[in-house]
């Protein structure tokens, strides 16, 4: 017998999760679509569902020891209107779906759903976000790229809940998020590009790039980025073709009903190139 529970506290939720497996429901914006059944009948869940969206203790955004910390069930629309929210994250949220979706969608949902086209994921990768997972046994912290292991795959254990997302506070002199969707709103990415640099006294101190929807998970290659730290801006721009070539082999998009691989690849590399030459 399926038993769906609406816990009243995080502790209750953790205890339930420790007891038996549940499907965790946050805002439901992905899950309710994936499990959709015939109209007027309930969505098809074979597992028990745990409703955590209304746990007020997981709704917050705060600054703490060099991090911006976001409670996992905070609707992304709230983040859009909060001064603490990192600029790039706001950029991504601002063109995510529609206001109605943003009132329910959460970053934790994007992580739990682990779609390569998840709008906030490239930002979390670029900002080196740390995902805080809590269970009755305690807390563990993992970088985002270790949480998501493939399309719709992650390492979150059955008894764990995403408690919060910690984003290190960092400075960028230039950063962009470019979502390429089928239309200007209410769209799923064909691909996305995120770039962030910190150039001080004409020296590249930080250089970060991520692509969404061009490979099985968000594409970020720290070993490529590191090669270009320490250059002058001029030097960096001068190496634009080299950088494009570095990323080229890692960009392996697919053909689907929304676009094709040639387009995804060409535009991903165009956006990278454009980001660098317009620094």
């Amino acid at each position: 017998m399926v038993k769906n529970i609406i816990p009243t506290s995080l502790n209750e939720a953790l205890e339930l999760l420790n007891d038996r497996p549940f499907k965790i429901m946050a805002g439901g914006t992905d899950l309710m679509v994936q499990r959709r059944a015939w109209s007027q009948t309930p969505p098809e869940f074979i597992e028990d569902v745990l409703y955590i969206f209304n746990l007020e203790e997981l709704k917050y955004i705060k600054e703490d020891k060099g991090f911006i910390v976001i409670g996992s069930t905070t609707p992304v629309e709230d983040l859009l209107h909060n001064d603490l929210t990192p600029f790039l994250l706001k950029e991504a949220i601002g063109i995510m779906a529609s206001p109605a979706l943003r009132h329910m969608a959460t970053i934790a949902g994007n992580i739990g759903n682990a779609s390569p086209a998840g709008d906030t994921l490239p930002i979390l990768y670029v900002l080196d976000a740390i995902i805080v997972l809590e269970s009755i046994e305690g807390i563990r912290e993992l970088p985002i790229n270790e949480v998501i292991t493939g399309p719709r795959k992650h390492v979150i254990k059955q008894n764990e809940i995403i408690k919060e997302i910690k984003i290190p506070i960092s400075v960028y002199t230039d950063s962009v998020f470019e979502k390429v969707g089928g239309r200007k709103a209410d769209a799923i990415s064909k691909l996305s590009f995120t770039g962030a640099v910190n150039i001080k006294d004409d020296k590249v101190l930080d250089f970060r790039i991520a692509f969404g929807a061009v490979s099985a998970t968000i594409l970020r290659r720290k070993e490529i980025e590191e090669k270009y730290v320490g250059l002058t801006k001029e030097e960096l721009i001068g190496k634009v073709d080299e950088i494009v070539n570095e990323y080229d082999p890692f960009i392996r998009p697919i053909d689907d009903q929304r676009s094709n691989k040639e387009y995804r690849k060409t535009v991903a590399l165009n956006l990278l190139k454009n980001f660098i030459i317009t620094l």
Binding site: T29, V33, R36, S39, P43, Y51, A100, L101, M104
Partner: peptide, 28 residues
């Protein structure tokens, strides 16, 4: 039925949401 068209929009605590993808459990 998938939260894209907005025909099912309602207000929850004064904010617009699409009721076709809101589980009843979330409105407690």
């Amino acid at each position: 039925g998938e939260g894209e068209c907005g025909a099912c929009a309602i207000l929850i605590n004064n904010d617009v949401v699409n009721s076709c993808i809101v589980p009843l459990g979330n409105v407690n």
